[in-house]
Amino acid sequence: MRFLPFLLLIFTLQALAAKKALVVVSVLPQKTIVQGVAGDLVDIEVMVGKGFNPATYQPSPRQIARLSRAVLYVRAGMPFEQSWLPRFTAVNPAMAILDMREGLKLLPAQGHHAQDADPHIWTDPELVKQHAQRLRDRLDALFPAHKSRFDENYSRFAARLNALDRELQTTLAPVRGESFLVYHPAWSYFAHRYGLKQMAVEHEGKEPNPRSLARLIETAKRAHIHTILVQPQHSAATARVLADAIGAKLVQMDPLEADIFSALRKLAAALTAQKS
């Protein structure tokens, strides 16, 4: 029996040694990207879970505590990061930070001041690929023993993104140049990539006033819009009013869905269905 505490200590040390490095990301689509490059070599945690709004999110004490063992934090440019990231680094000064917007050609957030960049780069497969390459380089530097695995994973992930991009180019060719209407303007990069025009109900994070809503109704009618995209993180009340006014249907489309591939295919299907 005297050896039991010693054996428990050995098992505990082995369990600790077997723990994978922790990478933390801000929103769910980033998890798909990290998994695509890192595979099963790291653990991944997401700060803003399903259904939560990154504009108003407040990390839990447990999440803050977990950051103390994170090796890398991949920021997305979401509003909550502005005030919380300094606190994250205070908890873990050794944690590396990678901004997923780094080195990319960014678009201004629609309806905001020009200096505010739209963070939703995962809606463009080409931008995802460019970010994934920088993520691979950072992981190579942090974990050189796994460099060949990261490089192989990236190559496979990039090939999947290239195939998705070709598929979307073909699917969306019939609606190129047309407009689509959303509540919250989260699809700017998608629209830019595939030659579409995104119109938004929300302006600078605010509901439209009656005059703006009337103008939007007229614009939507002229554009022959029959579908309004709404997302689960925002109220759809104003979108319903607009839908009734122009005879459109509401379609829920989540730009924060974890599976980037599925989300973009669903969006393409909704936009092409609008034409039929």
Rank of each mutant, 00 (worst) to 15 (best):
M1Q: 11
R2G: 02
F3A: 11
F6T: 10
L9R: 10
L9E: 08
L9Q: 08
L9H: 06
L13Y: 02
Q14E: 11
A18Y: 12
L22T: 11
L22E: 08
V25C: 07
V25I: 14
L28P: 00
K31A: 13
T32A: 15
V34G: 01
A38F: 07
D40G: 14
D43F: 03
E45H: 12
E45F: 07
A55M: 06
Y57S: 02
P59Q: 06
P59D: 05
P61Y: 12
Q63E: 10
S68K: 15
V71H: 11
Y73K: 04
R75D: 01
G77E: 00
M78C: 03
F80W: 06
F80L: 04
Q82F: 09
Q82N: 10
W84H: 08
W84T: 07
L85K: 02
R87I: 08
T89K: 15
A90V: 05
N92L: 05
I97P: 03
D99A: 13
M100T: 07
R101N: 15
E102T: 12
K105T: 10
K105W: 01
L107Y: 03
P108K: 11
A109W: 04
Q110D: 09
G111A: 06
H112V: 04
H112P: 00
H113P: 00
A114N: 13
A114P: 05
A117D: 09
P119C: 12
H120D: 04
W122M: 03
P125F: 03
A132S: 14
L139Q: 02
A141R: 15
L142N: 03
F143H: 05
F143P: 00
P144V: 11
A145R: 14
F150W: 06
D151E: 15
E152I: 08
E152L: 14
N153T: 09
R160V: 05
R160K: 15
N162A: 12
R166H: 13
R166C: 03
E167N: 12
E167I: 07
L168M: 08
T170A: 14
R176Y: 06
G177D: 02
P185V: 02
S188V: 08
A191G: 13
R193K: 14
Y194A: 00
Y194K: 02
Y194Q: 02
M199E: 06
V201L: 09
H203P: 00
G205D: 04
G205Q: 09
E207R: 08
P208D: 06
P208S: 07
N209A: 08
E218L: 07
K221C: 07
H224R: 13
H226E: 08
H226K: 15
I228T: 01
V230S: 01
H234W: 10
H234S: 08
A236Q: 10
I246C: 05
L250N: 02
V251K: 05
Q252W: 11
A258H: 13
A258R: 15
L264P: 00
K266I: 08
K266W: 11
K266N: 15
T272A: 06
Q274E: 12
Q274T: 05
Q274R: 14
K275R: 15
